[in-house]
Design a binder for these strands. Structure first.
Lengths: 234, 234
DNA sequence: CCAAAAGTGTTATCAATACACCCATGT
DNA sequence: ACATGGGTGTATTGATAACACTTTTGG
């Protein structure tokens, strides 16, 4: 079983940094830790890797077990491996960041396991080094979202341009010019205009759009410059 | 010692994907694997994580032990965690990519441990999933180098613009317009012109430059667009 | 008819490219 | 003197951003 003799084996966990958007604010999903120590303190959703699982499998399993969410956008992110990060026993954490539309999953999430959404500027104390993970992941989210159309993952299947703009403004904590924003996004060719309008937030009403899925996949890796003056955020 | 009961502990290794540049070609540094199985087959430089080490520490130690190199540019890269990737025993690999100037270290490397530089288009068979690691890392190198001035790490302290251009052309396997390239790089403000000229490669001679270290650090995270038409590479 | 939000048009500025041309010098 | 590579100048194109203006419709 231990074929490489004399080596040190380490517990390996996955932790998911789950961002959501409710139409107004970008939020982060946390759960209460179920193990001692720090039981009951807020924590990222995580779990240990099982013998037959890859870290990616483990992250997807953890997410599904705890929230019922499947087929979520999830990226491997960073390894946190300071030998003292978990005071109980050395544990390596492979982190993932995930993006979901809050409304689509609100019901599943209101259940037994008490996950809760937190505003980014109002985060509770978190276990171990989870606060650091979140800080770095948010930076990474901003970085990646400036170049690639990942934030669409946070929106429902149909959405308006003003909603999209509110999302970008939430992520970058700033305001963009409405007129340039809509033209820039439309010029990517990623959006398909629908007949229907959203009349909730204005009298004129804003057209709904949906993603052009094939165009989205083809252009995902291109550098799109979706954010004005991106340099100022880095 | 095992404080979280009933969990599965895993061997964790680090593997370093080391890119170098000799003035003409971009190359990758490999060593012969010292353990069975596949002993003697080419491999990335790697080793297991010790109990008191973070993965970053381990990567630096491995690099120093095997090559004598210290203070090398190194980025945490990706975790490879397929449970079957090492047939001997499950081993998680945390990979790093490193960039060094080949000439500065040629002597150290010619020693006992038989590391060897390989051209990217002439790579030998490699152990386990190391070939996959290299493929993905090269993509990542191209991605990052298009936006951030990392390739300077591959050059000596003083270098000419034509040398720099040869490096970029090697990384992207294409040719850039000399005139635009030099103006674009100079306009970043990252370069300081020296009095001396390199007369090796032309009669006129090309001025040497060095990095403006503080400017380099300040602007490292900015999006610089150092590569013409970067989209076509992704 | 007015307020409020959606979205189009217009223009100035700047960056990126393509390419003509001049420069320095070893042979 | 001339071939070779280094480097500057210039025109064109296109993207960006700032901002005026029109459009729609519920109250």
């Amino acid at each position: 079983m231990h074929e490489y003799p004399g080596q040190h084996r380490i517990l390996v966990a996955v932790d998911c940094i789950i961002f959501g958007f409710d139409g107004v604010n970008v939020k982060l999903l946390l759960v209460k830790r179920s193990l001692t120590p720090e039981q009951g303190k807020w924590s990222l959703m995580g779990g240990f890797i099982n013998p037959s699982e890859s870290p990616d499998d483990a992250a997807n399993r953890v997410l599904e077990e705890r929230t019922g969410l499947k087929d979520v956008y999830m990226d491997q992110f960073m390894v946190f491996g300071n030998p003292k990060r978990d005071p109980v026993e050395r544990t390596l954490s492979v982190t993932y960041f995930a993006l979901i539309d809050i409304h689509q999953y609100e019901e599943q999430l209101s259940g037994e396991h008490s996950p809760e959404w937190f505003l980014l500027d109002n985060m509770p104390d978190m276990v171990f080094d989870h606060a650091e993970m979140v800080t770095i992941a948010l930076k990474q989210l901003r970085y990646k979202a400036a170049l690639h159309p990942i934030l669409f993952q946070l929106l429902p299947g149909k959405f308006t341009i003003p909603q999209l703009q509110a999302l970008y403004e939430g992520v970058y904590q700033t305001e963009f010019d409405d007129r340039n924003f809509s033209r820039k996004l439309l010029s990517t060719g990623l959006l398909v205009k629908l007949a229907e309008k959203d009349k909730q937030s204005s009298k004129k009403g804003a057209f709904y759009y949906r993603l052009d899925q094939s165009h989205y996949e083809e252009n995902f890796e291109k550098f799109l410059n979706l954010v004005p003056n991106p340099d100022k955020f880095f």
